[in-house]
Design a binder for these strands. Structure first.
Length: 660
RNA sequence: GCCUGGGUAGCUCAGUCGGUAGAGCAACGCAUUCGUAAUGCGUAGGUCAGGGGUUCGAAUCCCCUCCCAGGCUCCA
């Protein structure tokens, strides 16, 4: 038999008998590799281990503890899930079941419109473990379209996918079906076969470190108008340890959930009497918010912004002119009828109001760029299922500004704005950013193609010049213009949309806002919408999660707590507190009615940056004992002056006790 | 808005088969005076989210509304 030569990732070559598979190759390289192998990557394409290799192919063996390996085993686990469901619910229709970040899902439609319950997950998972124990091979076959339609005649979703692929098909469909001419399937047993491009692990016995997480509804093909399917989410990993680590990470993320911390630290709440998505800020959350807002105001003063104030409601005419009632009505609260049929709306955005301020008198080009800033509270009628803590609310305050400038000024203004944004975010301790460019929303936009193209090009250029990673978000813009949003990665690697910068040629036109230029003629200004926090509420939520509630000292509601060892030290504790308070430090004393240990524990749980403990020695020598947040190693005998110096430097530098 | 699961003391949660409610922490009172993450004893605290229904009897079963969680769709 003639031999073929294949290339390995390290550049070396191996000679194998013709017809050898990737598994044969793995076996030649090493026993251990053959045992670990899940799939292969041949010329950049993932394939089954059983696929015969061709001469000259570049081959790497895919093992479980790799990105591809996890993807393959997650996808295979999804098949096992589908098989388990069809065993437990004969006649169930299965739709699609891809691997996703950290796991997989599969969508089903159960006979008689049945739904999964949480208890069903336990049964399904048990059935899946049986299938794993049965050591079923994943056997690939290829069929013609006609054969495929025949095989899956009882599975309407599969039929739809095959037909969709025939007429072009989406990426998603192709991933399921294979290609436009061949239908590939995987058979685990005579009773279960799924339409799939693969690849899969050789056998179900290679799976097992998985856990079903939850059931959810999901629309077929992600379209609200389609019937809703029953989706089961699961997570799957290459080893018991990896699964445990993932579950541990989820638990950790839960500990820094801002909704939980908001409750524990007494920052804010959502009284149900007020309504869904409407927050109240408690005194401690109020301090945090006030400090954020005051800092932002200062930066905006320095950035040459003017401060304006506008009402929360307006007659419908304003939103007719702005286009909100035409394009954004479903995001707005229904109107209230006043004064003989006059309809008033709660404002969903501040821009129309700011345009009216611009228009309140004649404007000269000498005034441009004109930057109007407002902490503007807006209300949006979010669908009931989408409100989420402070990050998705129905009432929020935007640190909103609108910049009116000439076309010539636009690019410079955007570039300096981007710098301004990033500097502000860094001041709050966020350092890891990328940019997203959102373009014209299909069928939901005003303005001409030329205007949109120009706006998009300008934004792309500015974003590119910023030297940050740029991701395209096709069709994600607002109805009046494209936007750049700054995405920040937090301490545990999640990304959050923070600032948005939108370019708008439409609104000035719709309002007929003009300025007199040097040529003595009227010109239309460009409008730049921008919010740096996005909303104050969301920004606070992101910071709380980023810091896991351990806010930098300048933002922490209480910065120092002074504890006397015995109650005869209390008066000294109050003296210390009074001295620090003169410097604007937020400091409290807790009198010695409880044991010291208990009071320290309480202060630690409240995440107070500095606990000062004062006893006999301190009273005698004018010192304090410092127990800093994040430290288990208190420092004794520090003079008040030394502590004060350290604290004020840290506050001014936006530092945290953990960092020093 | 849709799907699934929830809502019991300030918080976290238990409450069996339908027989009128319980713990820990917190709060309050008294005692304790203590050098770095829980001192002891005691007291009080509930329209079981709200409304309607079934029943001799409902936290428990049914219906409606509100609110929450995780998804889908949508979005700052």
């Amino acid at each position: 038999m003639p031999d073929i030569e294949v290339l390995l990732p390290d550049g070396s070559a191996r000679t194998l008998p013709e017809g050898s598979t990737a598994l044969d190759l793995a076996a030649v390289i090493g026993k251990r590799l053959a045992k670990d192998a899940l799939a292969a990557e041949v010329n950049g394409q993932l394939t089954d281990l059983s696929a015969p290799l061709t001469a000259g192919a570049r081959v790497s063996i895919v093992t479980p503890a790799s990105e591809h390996g996890r993807e393959v085993l997650r996808h295979s686990t999804a098949h096992v899930l589908a098989q388990a469901v069809t065993r437990l619910w004969p006649g169930a229709h299965y739709a699609i079941g891809p691997a996703i970040r950290d796991g997989f899902y599969y969508d089903f439609s159960l006979p008689g419109g049945d739904h999964f319950s949480d208890d069903d997950l336990v049964r399904i998972e048990a059935e899946m473990r049986k299938i794993v124990a049965e050591d079923q091979p994943f056997t690939r076959s290829e069929f013609s379209i006609e054969e495929g339609l025949e095989i899956f005649k009882d599975q309407p979703f599969k039929v739809e996918i095959i037909k969709a692929v025939l007429s072009g098909g989406t990426q998603e469909d192709l991933a399921e079906a294979g290609s436009a001419t061949v239908v590939s399937t995987y058979e685990n047993s005579s009773s279960f076969r799924d339409l799939c491009r693969g690849p899969h692990v050789p056998s179900t016995s290679r799976l097992g470190h998985f856990k079903l997480m939850r059931v959810a509804g999901a629309y077929w093909r992600g379209d609200e108008k389609n019937p809703q399917l029953q989706r089961i989410y699961g997570t799957a990993w290459e080893s018991k340890d990896a699964l445990a680590a993932h579950l541990h990470q989820l638990a950790e993320a839960e500990l820094r959930d801002h909704r939980r911390l908001g409750q524990e630290l007494d920052l804010f709440s959502f009284p149900s009497e007020i309504g869904s998505g409407l927050a109240v800020f408690h005194p401690k959350g109020g301090i945090m918010r006030r400090v954020m807002e005051e800092y932002s105001r200062g930066r905006h003063v320095a950035g040459d912004y003017e401060f304006v104030y506008t009402p929360h409601i307006s007659k419908s005419e304003l939103f007719e002119t702005s286009g909100h009632l035409e394009w954004f009505a479903e995001g707005m609260y229904p109107p209230m009828e006043l004064d003989e049929g006059q309809r008033y709306y709660l404002k969903p955005m501040n821009c129309p109001f700011h345009v009216l301020i611009f228009k309140s008198r004649q404007r000269s080009y000498r005034e441009l760029p004109l930057r109007m800033f407002e902490f503007g509270s807006v209300y949006r009628y979010e669908k009931s299922g989408v409100v989420h803590g402070l990050t998705r609310v129905r009432g929020m305050t935007q640190d909103d500004a609108h910049i009116f400038c000439t076309k010539e000024q636009m690019a410079d203004e955007l570039a300096s704005l981007l710098k301004f944004v990033l500097a502000l975010l860094r001041d709050f301790g966020l350092n890891d950013f990328y940019l997203e460019l959102s373009t014209r929303p299909e069928g939901k936009a005003v303005g001409t193609d030329e205007e949109w193209a120009e706006a998009e090009v300008t934004l792309a250029t500015v974003a590119g010049a910023a030297g940050l990673e740029l991701v395209l978000d096709e069709g994600g813009g607002a109805f009046y213009g494209p936007k750049i949003s700054v995405q920040a990665r937090d301490a545990i690697g999640r990304t959050h949309q923070m600032s948005t910068i939108q370019l708008d040629f439409q609104t000035p036109q719709r309002f007929d806002a003009t300025y007199i230029a040097a040529d003595n003629a009227r010109h239309q200004p460009i409008m730049i919408h921008r919010a740096l926090f996005g909303s104050v509420e969301r920004f606070m939520a992101v910071l709380i999660e980023h810091y896991a509630g351990n806010m930098p000292t300048w933002l922490n509601p209480e910065q120092v707590r002074v504890l006397g060892v015995r109650d005869d030290h209390d008066s000294y504790a109050y003296e210390i507190a009074a001295a620090l308070r003169l410097d604007g430090v937020r400091v409290q004393v807790e009198a010695a009615s409880e044991p010291l240990g208990a009071r320290i524990r309480k202060a630690k749980m409240e995440k107070v940056p500095y606990i000062l403990v004062v006893g006999d020695e301190d009273v005698a020598s004018g010192t304090v004992g410092i127990n800093a947040r994040g430290s288990n190693d208190p420092e004794r005998g520090v003079t008040l002056a030394q502590f004060r110096e350290h604290l004020l430097v840290e506050i001014a530098g936006h530092g945290s006790p953990e960092a020093s």
